[in-house]
């Protein structure tokens, strides 16, 4: 199968005040790939992810989506965001809407789908994540794991080509983590292109095609899970994994 390049990032830079958070990031994503981004706190993982759907505006470089630079003027940012969805650590479900409406509003207001079509699609994805029985529940009444399932369904309802996950299990009780990872695994098997920032090393090992290790605003090392976890080349990768393993014990 020919590789189809969806996202290509060149010389990406971002700073907050004097703090250089992303330094010259080079990075690409092929269709159907599952990429995990690991790295210590503050290394710029979230910022990189947020730049990809423009929740954060980069200061320099280019982000090509199917060859078009989305940082150029005249690019419809909102249309781009429907193609590149996002799942947040803190879910960010709309408090003023129930589960079903959370999944419908974007379809109706942004994609201009009919109510009927939006509802069918919402129920389809809610069933997929195991939340169909909760369609009419208030979004603030759910457990963390349930909220994250709904948030994933909400993102899928927009039919994104790429889905970004920023530590989707970090705010969950330990017993909820497995369920969310299973949902993500299933999506990966179905061929969805995903970029996942995570501290779940087992997930990174088992599910991803490629692992990116970030350190202090740069991609310090990148490779297959085997390369990164079994034979890391860089000293800082080894150190990070070592620290991580000893912390995990």
């Amino acid at each position: 199968m020919a590789r189809e390049n969806i996202i290509e990032i060149h010389h990406l830079q971002k700073h907050f005040g004097d703090l250089e958070v992303l330094k010259n990031i080079e990075f690409h994503v092929d269709k159907g790939e599952v990429i995990t981004i690991i790295g210590s706190s503050g290394s710029g993982k979230s910022t990189l992810l947020r730049c990809i759907n423009l929740l954060e505006m980069p200061d320099g470089g280019e982000i090509l989506y199917h060859g078009n630079d989305i940082l150029k003027h005249g690019i419809d940012i909102n249309a781009h965001r429907t193609h590149v969805g996002m799942v947040f650590q803190n879910f960010n479900l709309f408090h003023n809407k129930n589960v079903l409406d959370n999944c419908m509003i974007g379809q109706i207001k942004v994609l201009k789908r009919s109510k009927q079509e939006a509802k069918e699609k919402a129920l389809y994805y809610l069933e997929k994540v195991g939340m169909q029985d909760f369609a009419h529940a208030g979004s603030t009444q759910l457990s963390g794991g349930q909220k994250q399932r709904v948030a994933i369904a909400r993102a899928l309802c927009m039919d994104p080509e790429v889905l970004l996950f920023d530590e989707p299990t970090s705010a969950l009780d330990p017993e909820m983590v497995g369920g969310i990872l299973d949902v993500m695994k299933q999506l990966a098997q179905e061929g969805l292109t995903m970029i996942v920032v995570t501290h779940e090393m087992a997930f990174a090992k088992d599910v991803s095609n490629r692992v990116i290790f970030m350190d202090q605003g740069v991609i310090a090392e990148e490779g297959t899970p085997q390369e990164i976890f079994e034979h890391p080349k860089q000293e800082r990768t080894k150190e990070f994994l070592h620290r991580f393993r000893s912390a995990g014990q």
Binding site: L55, T82, F88, N92, H95, N96, I105, G106, V110, A155
Partner: peptide, 23 residues
């Protein structure tokens, strides 16, 4: 209103006006 609500709305492509009005 929590900033996460705004980000949730922006992440599915809602305009600032739609975000303000509906969320």
């Amino acid at each position: 209103v929590d900033n996460g609500q705004l980000e949730g709305a922006r992440s599915i492509g809602m305009t600032s006006f739609q975000t303000m009005l509906y969320i």
